[in-house]
């Protein structure tokens, strides 16, 4: 067992919402630099799992360990500062601000930490961060929209912008909750290329995706979640051939 390069370990996590057992006995290990896909039918608990990892929800029991640090009990902003960024299922963006500012803000968190009183410096003089943000926007193919108000973007563009907001922080672990939902086939392919490019830089990713084309072009490992349990786990080929998975998910949905 090459346990040494496990960067994220979700250990025996349970999450209950009243009577609903949304996550049951989840044990998930993600290797450094790998892309780990989580698939499963609607309501399986995929987003809930990410919510537990980033501290939006506290697990009912169990804990999450990231690179030796226990995340459970930490605040979301502390967890982010450890190097974890997330793209949400419904875009979480600053709708009233420009696209450029949306991408600059996370860069400030990375550079200046959780809080700084930099109120006498002019935003216009932050050229390094602005250029970095423009560069990031170019990477996701959105530089021409830099001055638009983020709220007026299309759904697919909001997602790409949110991806840029995460990537500018150079996180060690990137969590993606259906990053290509609402995108055209062309934009989906650009996003896949982009995510492959980041992979070559060694970023670890956990990706939730319904689009099997995306899953099989990116994932090194796949975990299948159904009704809060991991029912299968393995390489894409292993999972594809697993009859339980066929039944619970692949067969039904596609």
């Amino acid at each position: 067992m090459a346990n040494s390069n496990i960067v994220l370990h979700v250990a025996d996590v349970h999450k209950r919402f009243g009577g609903l057992h949304a996550l049951a006995d989840i044990d998930l290990q993600v290797e450094e630099g790998k892309t780990h896909a989580i698939i499963g039918p609607n309501g399986a608990g995929k987003s809930t799992l990410l919510n537990v990892i980033i501290g939006k929800l506290a697990p009912s029991s169990g804990q999450v360990v990231f690179d030796g640090a226990i995340l459970t009990g930490r605040k979301p902003y502390q967890i982010n500062q450890l190097g974890i960024a997330r793209v949400f299922q419904t875009p979480e963006i600053f709708s009233d601000l420009s696209v450029l500012h949306n991408v600059m803000i996370p860069a400030f968190a990375k550079r200046d930490g959780t809080f700084t009183l930099n109120m006498l410096r002019a935003l216009d003089s932050e050229t390094t961060i602005r250029e970095e943000a423009e560069h990031m926007l170019e990477d996701v193919g959105m530089l021409n929209r830099r001055d638009m108000q983020a709220g007026s973007l299309s759904r697919g563009d909001k997602r790409r912008m949110e991806l840029a907001m995460c990537l500018i922080q150079h996180p060690r672990l990137l969590l993606l909750d259906e990053p290509t939902a609402g995108m055209s086939r062309h934009d989906t392919n650009t996003t896949i290329e982009l995510l492959k490019k980041i992979k070559s830089r060694g970023m670890t990713k956990v990706i939730i995706e319904h689009d099997m084309h995306v899953v099989f072009s990116l994932a090194d490992k796949i975990s299948v979640l159904a009704q809060g349990r991991i029912i299968a786990d393995g390489t894409p080929d292993e999972v594809r051939g697993n009859p339980k998975v066929q039944e619970a998910y692949l067969g039904g949905a596609h």
Partner: peptide, 13 residues
């Protein structure tokens, strides 16, 4: 003002 939740998940207290 725009999205306090996003601020927190972006690393700001």
């Amino acid at each position: 003002k725009s999205n306090q939740t996003r601020m927190q998940f972006t690393g700001f207290n």
